[in-house]
Amino acid sequence: MKQLFRQMTLMVITCGFITAAQATTPEEDLAAFQKFYKKRFPNVETSDFVNGAYSIDPVGRENWEAIEEFPPYEPFIDEGQAMWEKPFANGKTYKDCFPDGPAIAGKYPQWDKEKGMVMTLPLALNNCREANGEKPMKYKKGSINSILSYISFESRGQITNVEIPSDDPAALQAYEDGKKFYYSRRGQLNFSCAHCHLQNAGMILRTETLGPALGHTTHFPVYRSKWGTVGTLHRRFTGCNKQVRAKPFKAQGEEYRNLEYFLTYMSNGLPLNGPGARK
């Protein structure tokens, strides 16, 4: 009897804990998120959101389609292929780290249970390099964009399918942290990511159409005309944070990794189409 009582109390406590810590499940978040865009843009096919603002801005789309005829990211793909194939000083190659490569973009970001953290593709690539005695690449600019361009190109058509393993509460916590980051106001201008890319997606900011967050992760790395080169997702995060006048976080630091985990999960079901080209 006493034991039964104790079990009952424990159940009540656990139940209370779960509802308090996690008001909605990732599945519910995903459904609400994607439903929001379907309602706002009823004429856009869900899979077309991978084209960002061009899925909802016909004039921008025309210019973009013209750019895509001679993709500015092409040289980066070629350079990345050479990087992929060139052996490290110890004779091994990336293929030794990633036997399924090069088409592995669809596997990331993933929860690394052993390390207890979100593993992203750039981080995994550098782990491979360091394990083989090579210098790590920088996470925002430079050669990392070439190899990412190649891997993304080879992975085109894979379906975004981020998993949040239910057997590890730390994975759910990482997702929740990313979600909180997304919806939190920051910087002197007091914007959250959601203010522009959810609440006001499709509206015009001066002359630019604000792109929907759905599909934001599918086309990275991205050639931005503004940059004049290809850049990583975390470089873009940095730029966004600076625009709202917040101090950006470290590329591949915990904040941005968790943000990537959440944001990519929100695009589950959408095909990968990187590398992309954007204004």
């Binding site: 439903k35 919806y183 939190s184 959601a194």
Partner: peptide, 9 residues
């Protein structure tokens, strides 16, 4: 965290 009111669960 307060979820935006325009997201409908």
């Amino acid at each position: 965290l307060t979820m935006p009111s325009y997201l409908h669960y």
